[in-house]
Computed example of a mutant assay.
Amino acid sequence: MDWGRAKSVLIFAFLMLNVILGYQLWLNIQERQSANADAGSLPPDTLAIMQQKNISFAANIRIPSETPKLRDLTFRVTNKLGIGERHELEEPVESKIVFNKKELQEDLGSIIPELNLYGFDSDKDIEFVFNRMVDGRPMFDVKLELFYSNQKITAYRQDVIELVAGEDSREQVVLPATKALGSLIENHLHNGAVIREIKLGYHGQPFDSETQFWSPSWRVLLEDNSVYYYVDAVSAEVETVSQSG
């Protein structure tokens, strides 16, 4: 055996390994910097707490800059289909239609009431989740769930509501997302948390009564997907809700 040549080959292999590991480290650093590129819009004291608690943003997440004027929503829960009742489809349909509004409406619009008023929110293990939309913003807890199996939608469950004109409700400029995040980062998020979404919509208490009053709220989700954080976009009060609950 040519030990000199073997030694040269081993040295070259180790050099290549170091190059690959160094490149991977560089990619990780770049990804982390990209993920936190939008953090610069946060106040310095919030940034300091983020660094202290090792809190970051997931890749491609941007902090919304909008501060529109919104009013509280008043609505009634209707019982056309029964709240929480699951309805099986007579003929399952392809699940891919969820990502095409026209096909979704064509295949399920005659079956699911007011389907066009719901917007896609998330894809869970066995269901696609939609939210009731109002002026382009989601009512986070008014849901349409499409259950699927073997790439077929087999059943649905729907919350049906009727909006009511709120005579005493006036428009107010909402709390900026940066302030909502600042409160969460300082007082609620755990060390190492990774923020993957912040979205403006409406949130309120569960359907304990027929008439509901919901306020504009920022919803914040983490990568571990365990808890919803809702920050009232007027009062800044924070509520945490387990996603399993």
Rank of each mutant, 00 (worst) to 15 (best):
M1S: 15
W3H: 14
A13W: 00
F14H: 10
M16L: 05
L17S: 07
V19E: 04
I20Y: 04
L25T: 04
L27P: 09
E31P: 05
D38R: 10
L47P: 01
I49K: 10
I55H: 09
A58S: 05
A58N: 13
R62E: 11
I63R: 07
R71Y: 08
T74Q: 15
T74S: 12
T78G: 07
T78D: 09
L81T: 05
L81D: 00
L81C: 09
E88W: 13
L89P: 00
E90L: 08
P92L: 09
K96D: 06
I97M: 03
N100A: 05
L104S: 03
E106T: 13
L108M: 02
L108Q: 01
G109F: 12
G109K: 15
I112P: 01
I112F: 07
I112A: 00
P113D: 03
L115E: 02
L115T: 10
F120M: 09
F120H: 04
K124S: 04
K124Y: 09
I126N: 08
E127Q: 04
F130S: 01
N131H: 14
P138L: 03
K143E: 00
E145Y: 11
I153Q: 06
A155D: 09
A155K: 07
A155P: 04
Y156H: 14
V164N: 13
A165K: 12
A165F: 12
D168W: 12
Q172V: 05
V173I: 09
V174W: 03
A177F: 08
T178S: 07
T178C: 11
S183K: 15
E186L: 07
H188P: 06
H190T: 08
E197C: 13
K199W: 03
L200R: 01
Q205A: 13
D208R: 10
S209I: 10
E210Y: 10
S215D: 09
L221N: 11
D224F: 12
S226V: 11
S226C: 06
V227D: 11
Y228G: 02
V231Y: 08
V234T: 13
E237Q: 10
V238M: 06
E239V: 08
S242V: 14
S244F: 11
G245D: 02
